[in-house]
Design a protein around this nucleic acid. Structure first.
Lengths: 231, 231
DNA sequence: GTCTATAACGAGATAGAC
DNA sequence: GTCTATCTCGTTATAGAC
């Protein structure tokens, strides 16, 4: 009986994965806006109504793809961080950024799904919030380590930004000074700005040696959050 | 006869504008991927085949919208720069960035069209290259002014980046040192990273006082391209 | 209980004949 | 420029196999 349930659950997991794989394939050549349950079902040899056993609606399938993408890029960041070993915080920062970049360049369509234009008519449920913050949390933890061991080299917060800095620090970096919270939020957005320009082709005909360019840019981001050149 | 042609051309201009306006409206609630000549025609009370007299294909209409958007955001940057008056380069930089941000927040869908995910199946023709670079050129010209009057405070280029820096400088900033070209390209991407995070909702539940946050972030970008705090 | 298949709805797109 | 026949879509109700 539990063996039966085991087999059923296995089948369910497999079919769910097959649906998502096929949906990702369609994402790549048609874009998220045109993702169609019927087309996915057709390609899998199923009937469209059968898909509703696995995803209650098209938006739920989209949500699953989005959560998977955030988890994949978050995993990439966390794995890179864990594997970085005993190097300086600055080097760990660069390593994590380069790993995130590697994922994005390898999966441009999934990257576009999470960091590109919002899908029209779709509003992300709160289930995406957690996975969406994993890359940021990895970067924050690097800054936290550096703060505790050597401190962070950051200018004081301007008076106009003081309330926001304190709110931000309370929300995302309770153990770090307010200046670090502001710098980290900006660096986080700027990292993905560099990435989006590369993935979306804005650097075509502009930047040629993108590896070197990107590495230098994320080193500057490390500096902007106060990570020292040598620990 | 020339009066007739004048009237005809006027009508053509008006209809072309009406088509683009309606297309922009549809962009807002359906996204670029689903932009359909037929729907535009229907909404305008025309027949779809009539539209082909104004735009030979859906992609041509898309191109026109993209060029318009690049020109509008470029105009915004140039106008802000021209109206900034006799202030420091750093202040001009911030003014231009805030103006660009104002445009993006007011027209999120047009912003998404040019700085969001690429439209599946569409490849931008070379006619978009010029308009696409206007914001960057405005920022470059600020750095150029500062360089000529006070110089730019920039660290030397790392050896690994030297070839790219020189190529980049030759292409986009022939009058500036290679270090400035690299810094400007990075700041350019990072500016739009901040903007995309704000426009696309990534800052929801994270950054609250976005005006103050953004202004501080673009001041840091000014610093990253070597603009001094006081001229 | 779990799943798939049939059929249908209302809406919209598309192709072609006229 | 118009009309129509035929596609697509998301979604639901229902019936039956395992």
């Amino acid at each position: 009986m539990s063996a039966v349930r085991g087999a059923r659950e296995r089948a369910r997991t497999e079919i769910t994965a097959a649906i998502k794989d096929e949906a990702r394939r369609q994402l790549a050549d048609q874009g998220a806006a045109k993702l169609s349950l019927r087309a996915v079902a057709r390609e899998l040899g199923m009937v469209s109504s059968a898909l509703y056993r696995y995803f209650p609606s098209r938006d739920d399938l989209l949500t699953a793809l989005i959560v998977d993408a955030y988890d994949a890029i978050g995993d990439t960041a966390e794995t890179a961080l864990a594997g970085a070993g005993a190097v300086s915080a600055r080097t760990r920062w660069v390593t994590v950024c380069m790993a995130v970049r590697g994922w994005a360049l390898a999966r441009p369509h999934e990257y576009a799904l999470i960091y590109g234009s919002p899908v029209p008519g779709y509003t992300a449920p709160s289930a995406t919030i957690g996975p969406a913050s994993r890359v940021a949390l990895a970067l924050i933890s690097i800054a936290g380590d550096a703060y505790r061991s050597d401190g962070l080299a950051l200018p004081p917060v301007a008076p106009a930004l003081r309330p926001e800095a304190e709110r931000l620090a309370a929300d995302i970096t309770p153990d770090l000074p307010p200046a670090a919270a502001v710098a980290l939020a900006a660096a986080w957005a700027q990292l993905f700005g560099l990435l989006s320009f590369e993935v979306f082709g804005q650097f075509n005909r502009v930047v040629t040696d993108r590896d070197a360019f990107f590495e230098r840019a994320v080193e500057n981001l490390a500096e902007s959050v106060g990570l020292l050149r040598r620990e």
